[in-house]
Design a protein around this nucleic acid. Structure first.
Length: 362
DNA sequence: AACACGTGGAT
DNA sequence: TATCCAAGTGT
């Protein structure tokens, strides 16, 4: 590998780069937001969220002034919600510790919450023109082929090796473009199924020369998915529905949901729901009609969620006690759109919007 | 080092 | 349909 590699790659990039909105003006705040959103997320999905975010929070000040509740709502649907919380925390830290100016030293950048080695290198190179590697999964895959690396690419040792290989290739004039070129090349040409016929870099590629392209990168073996059945209930009372806010240090911390839980062995979903309502909110309910079944997945779980319209078994005032949530409340159907829900519950809400009984609530 | 953390697109 | 996995970080 030598400097001709850099030239070839930048030539390819200049001719093929995607038109991403933050690229027209790579200032630190916008680049930072784009990089956090892009973590474990396909770039095409990021664009709409980024535009909405920048409209809502055009600068650090407006972001630091926002509540966590509000930020989670803007993030709703992107997943990995700690990213949104860390962005807000980091904004506060930049205001207090850096006089409101985004730090340009890589160590200071990486010290901010939610920013690791990759993101720090990406921001430093793209927004501040610093020569710093930004090794993401694309770059690891590309170099596993370029160097024909036979060890698992996720090993810390391989990542260091790749960082060392990348560093001398980064051009002083265009470090940010080079890092983005490497990632974009990995995403578009040197992807999971590489397009070696069209590859402008094959002359530099050891795996191509050795005929091992299909065996690189070496990946860890997969964990198997766990299937679970869940029951969820929409309790209607005085034309309002009960929602609760999930606890921190659990999945979906800070997001809202309808009460419910796992269907245990030997239980029907309806039985599980009655039990869960008693355990979670100390209310005696009965499930009426089945609204829908939502299938979704998160991390290693594949969930089948049975959803019921529920009523109270008692007359008179309902006083839920929130044993498994930070808080909760009865809210009007139309106000559901202002709370952040996990994707599965959001799909349940979408489904209810088509139902007459839901429409008839005041 | 290994696992948790979300979601939806691709195959 | 099932599985992979995408501009990773924190613990």
């Amino acid at each position: 590998m030598d400097r001709t590699f850099t030239e070839h790659l930048l030539q390819w990039y200049d001719a093929n780069r995607r038109d991403l909105p933050w690229r027209s003006n790579p200032e630190p705040y916008g680049v930072w937001i784009s990089e956090i959103m892009a973590q474990q997320t396909q770039m095409e999905r990021v664009v709409a969220y980024w535009r909405r975010w920048m409209e809502r929070y055009p600068d650090l000040g407006s972001l630091a002034a926002a509540s966590e509740e509000e930020v989670l709502k803007v993030w709703e649907g992107l997943g990995y919600y700690s990213r949104a919380k860390n962005i807000r925390k980091a904004a506060e830290l930049i205001l207090t510790d850096h006089a409101g100016v985004f730090p340009d030293e890589i160590k200071q950048i990486q010290a901010l919450p939610g920013i690791g080695a990759y993101t720090a290198g990406a921001i430093a190179s793209i927004a501040f023109n610093k020569v710093a590697p930004a090794v993401d999964a694309n770059v690891l895959r590309v170099f596993a082929r370029l160097l024909d690396i036979a060890e698992p690419v996720k090993a810390a040792k391989v990542k260091q090796e790749v960082e060392q290989a990348v560093l001398p290739l980064i051009p002083e004039k265009r470090p940010g473009d080079f890092n983005q070129a490497l990632m974009e090349f990995g995403a578009m040409i040197c992807s999971k199924r590489p397009d070696c016929d069209q590859c402008p870099m094959s002359q530099h590629c050891a795996a191509f020369a050795n005929g091992t392209t299909g065996e690189r990168p070496v990946l860890p073996r997969k964990r198997k998915a766990i299937h679970i059945e869940m029951a969820t209930g929409v309790l209607v009372y005085n034309d309002k529905v009960l929602i609760q806010k999930r606890k921190p240090d659990d999945v979906w911390p800070g997001l809202w949901e309808f009460p419910g839980g796992c269907v245990e062995k030997g239980e029907t979903p309806r039985e599980a729901l009655v039990r869960e309502y008693m355990e979670e909110v100390e209310l005696e309910i009965y499930p009426a009609e089945k609204i829908t079944v939502v299938s979704y997945s998160y991390t290693k779980y594949r969930v089948t969620m049975h959803c019921y319209l529920c009523h109270s078994a008692n007359n008179g005032q309902l006083k839920p006690v929130f044993n498994e949530a930070v808080t909760g409340q009865f809210v009007s159907p139309e106000s559901l759109s202002s709370y952040a829900f996990p994707a599965g519950h959001r799909r349940l809400i979408e489904c209810m919007l088509d139902e007459a009984w839901f429409d008839n609530l005041k």
